Computed example of a mutant assay.
Amino acid sequence: MHFLELRHAQCEPPAAYSPVLESYGDVQTVLLGTDPLPAHRRFDAVIVMGGPMGVGDQGEVEWLASEIEYIRDLVESDVPVWGVCLGSQLLAAALGARVYTGAVPEVGVEEITLTVEGRQDPVWGGLPSTFPAMQWHSDTFDIPNGAVRLAGSAKYPNQLFR
């Protein structure tokens, strides 16, 4: 398999996800702001990582808008896209959902609770119904039309969608 990793900061790699991805195939990493996005869309899946910026920073971070368009094109081409942290916000924006600053920051280890749909999900359903996750954000998103909410926290109910 051939995976694409979109990375927003050198210090924010897929970490524990890397050995899993590499066990299934080749991973091509693009460091946004440094490397160009690949012209082709021939990937088996794409993972979009986190970063210190937000969707609302498109005026200051020149490549964010083109990345959102790139993600939209991937989805429209039926390429699976997995967004982590900022990546989930970018995916939500690419699918037409509102991304905005929440009421309070969520920093530290917080409990995430799977929804009924999350507990039945083939990827996430094997986790406990509540589990700890590292959080460091104040942005959030609405669930895109046609998507299913899979998990949330007390401060941010939209943490995970399919």
Rank of each mutant, 00 (worst) to 15 (best):
2 H>D: 14
3 F>S: 06
3 F>R: 10
3 F>A: 06
9 A>W: 03
10 Q>F: 08
11 C>Q: 14
11 C>H: 11
12 E>V: 15
13 P>W: 00
13 P>S: 04
15 A>Q: 11
17 Y>N: 08
19 P>Q: 01
22 E>L: 07
23 S>P: 00
25 G>V: 05
25 G>P: 00
26 D>W: 01
27 V>A: 05
28 Q>R: 12
30 V>P: 01
31 L>T: 11
33 G>M: 02
35 D>Q: 06
37 L>Y: 07
37 L>A: 04
39 A>M: 03
41 R>T: 15
42 R>E: 13
43 F>T: 05
43 F>H: 05
44 D>H: 11
44 D>I: 10
45 A>F: 11
47 I>N: 03
48 V>A: 03
49 M>K: 04
50 G>H: 01
51 G>A: 01
52 P>F: 11
56 G>F: 09
57 D>R: 02
60 E>C: 13
61 V>C: 05
61 V>S: 13
66 S>P: 01
67 E>N: 06
67 E>L: 06
71 I>Y: 05
72 R>Y: 04
73 D>V: 14
74 L>I: 02
74 L>G: 03
74 L>S: 02
74 L>N: 08
76 E>P: 01
76 E>F: 10
78 D>S: 12
80 P>T: 02
81 V>P: 02
83 G>N: 12
84 V>Q: 05
84 V>R: 04
84 V>H: 03
85 C>I: 14
86 L>T: 06
86 L>F: 05
86 L>N: 05
86 L>E: 00
91 L>D: 05
91 L>E: 04
94 A>L: 08
95 L>Y: 03
96 G>H: 08
98 R>N: 12
99 V>F: 11
101 T>E: 14
101 T>F: 06
102 G>P: 02
103 A>E: 12
103 A>Y: 14
104 V>G: 09
105 P>Y: 14
109 V>C: 01
110 E>D: 09
110 E>N: 10
111 E>T: 11
112 I>L: 13
113 T>V: 09
121 D>W: 14
121 D>Q: 08
121 D>L: 06
123 V>D: 07
123 V>Y: 04
124 W>P: 04
124 W>H: 06
128 P>N: 10
130 T>P: 02
130 T>Q: 13
132 P>F: 02
138 S>C: 09
141 F>S: 07
141 F>T: 13
143 I>P: 09
143 I>H: 08
146 G>A: 08
146 G>L: 08
147 A>V: 08
150 L>E: 11
151 A>N: 09
152 G>P: 09
154 A>I: 15
160 L>F: 11
160 L>I: 10
161 F>Q: 03
